[in-house]
Design a protein around this nucleic acid. Structure first.
Lengths: 222, 222
DNA sequence: TAGATTGTTAATCGATTAACAATC
DNA sequence: TAGATTGTTAATCGATTAACAATC
């Protein structure tokens, strides 16, 4: 061992709870925020306080992946950022396909927030003849028929579904057959996929329902 | 007791785990889907299979709120839909405020998916003089200065934040002071609020990070 | 050194699942 | 009646927290 720190840049990740991974993303976002404000180091206590977790949880979560801290000091922000990016796979750039260019799809195309962590929509798909072949926000729009071909060509592994609900399952199947490995689904419908393909569902109405529930049940501590 | 069924339309909801409430939303979505396809009844087994839960979990979740099923039969879809809507508070219409009319904000304004469960954006806010005073998609656009006034007037209790990250906390505070009780935050930053105000954060980049993690760590069962 | 903070183990807490009597 | 399915209790499983020796 010629170098002792960071101790385990990517320790063997055994089975990691899903909740741990999403907290990892929050740690990363907060660390980037801290760096922007000139912080060099932070601690599990500080990170936990801002995000609403206990210090023990922050340390336990990181411990799934290795040893990143310095007893008595805390964590060096830049170092921990690099480590988490490597764990999450965002230490590289990810070309992403977007399917469906209705209101939501177009907004996602324009949305600059994805780029923040290296995600970049490089191809969009629709079946509307009036936009196929054009570019929107400098992104080429292809017909759905060209899906497999373009995904293969551009080595796309992640895709975003923003089509109407009834089409979502069909598009998802096309994507899987084209070799896509991860799908972010905005259509408000549960799609079924082989267990080898990871998918995340975002249903904006459901998020609002969580709010209305909380508001209606004020007092009953949830 | 003149009527015995449904046994407990809204039983005293003790402390309900957050995860239960989001599954409730999924049950509702699936039940509405089943009704659209002509089903009259369903069962915990069927509901669980489609959504990827065990039958026991479906029954346990519902048991937090009362008794809605019929042994030997299952659940009458329409009846359970009405019960869940009442629990979630979506048996009524919710006027919602939207703050920030950048790309994402405009898309949310046009997005029809909210209406599905009775949420309706009735007022939008921005600080851009070129759109204040106009209507977008028939929704009036106000200056941020008019926030408290309009929220009070229109009895708005829920709001969606779609402003740039640096403004999010300030806007959140304005909303709370104006009496808003629930906030859906799309800015990729953790906002801090009094515990009486419920908030949900949706960070699109973080959703994609969950995918890249899964793809990079294929094989290691997560 | 004294103070701060880590990584990790053990204890606690909460959520999921299995099992089954009761019911239709 | 036999078959299906509920609501609920008890058992299992997993995740969070507390505590503390080791370290800087």
């Amino acid at each position: 061992m010629d170098e002792d720190r960071p101790k385990s840049p990517l320790a063997t990740p055994g089975p990691v709870p899903k909740a741990v991974v999403s907290r990892l993303s929050l740690y990363l976002r907060e660390l980037q925020h801290l760096v922007q404000h000139g912080h060099q180091t932070t601690s599990s206590t500080q990170l936990g306080r801002v995000l609403g977790f206990t210090d023990a949880q922050v340390r336990k979560d990181l411990a799934y992946f290795g040893q990143f801290g310095y007893p008595g000091i805390g964590y060096r922000c830049e170092e921990l950022i690099a480590a988490i990016k490597q764990i999450l796979g965002t230490d590289r750039s990810w070309p992403v396909a977007l399917i469906g260019l209705g209101n939501l799809g177009r907004a996602l195309l324009r949305y600059r927030g994805f780029g923040r962590q290296g995600f970049c929509v490089v191809a969009a798909f629709d079946i509307d003849a009036s936009i196929v072949g054009t570019e929107i926000e400098q992104i080429p729009v292809f017909h759905l028929d060209q899906l497999a071909e373009v995904i293969d060509e551009r080595q796309i592994r992640l895709a975003i579904i923003a089509v109407p609900s009834p089409e979502a399952q069909g598009v998802a199947t096309l994507l899987v057959n084209a070799g896509v490995e991860g799908i972010l689904n905005f259509a408000p419908v549960t799609i079924s996929l082989p267990p080898t393909v990871k998918h995340v569902e975002v249903d904006l109405a459901i998020e609002l329902e969580q709010l209305s529930f909380a508001v209606v049940n004020r007092g009953e501590k949830t």
